[in-house]
Amino acid sequence: MGIARGANNSVGLRFVLISLLVVVLVLVFSIFFINSNSSPLKFTGYAVSQVGNLSAGITTYVTCNWVSDDLDVSFGSDLSPGAQVNATKNYAGAGDGTMYNISVDLLSNVAVNVTISGNDFVSGANIIKAGNITWASSTASANDGAMIASNGIALTEVANTVNPVASDLAAGETVHYRMWLSVPSGQVAGNYQGNYTTQCQQA
């Protein structure tokens, strides 16, 4: 093997290039054959310290309880298209309070957010969109005046984290809610069924 230059053979340039090749070869050699663990700059010795072992196992729980009324919400059976109706237990409690509520169990040791989502009402091929159901909630009381239809928030198909049912509930606290259904004008008659989900998770 050789490096040759036609007419103008420059010894200086050849020297520079060959030197570069040597540097490269030395670099390759150093990477492959010099073990970094045997570096002369490495100092070894004994570190002496006294350590007191500390340990702590932290377990978090989130737990919610629902009353039976939450599980079977009905808006009635003789509804007219175009009507807005209350869920049947909206005002069935003491002092016209709502019967729908969710409470954070005393086992919970973290603050809890409650969100809601729901599916469309379906009757065969006919649908009432989930957004026709609105809800309002209160942690103040079961008959809080703020829980009225005009303050209702449309039910969404994915959990509504922008408008949670409740935020930062502590163990033992309760959130009350009411629901309303707006039956679209011209809606086909039928027995419609749907479902909704209320979910608790750490705030």
Partner: peptide, 24 residues
């Protein structure tokens, strides 16, 4: 994401409520 423990104790209701708790 979250892992949701979901109970559906209300089959056959007009507007049945599912209950869920989630671990983030």
């Amino acid at each position: 994401g979250s892992m949701s423990a979901v109970g559906s104790p209300s089959e056959g209701s007009q507007f049945g409520g599912n209950v869920a708790v989630a671990s983030q």
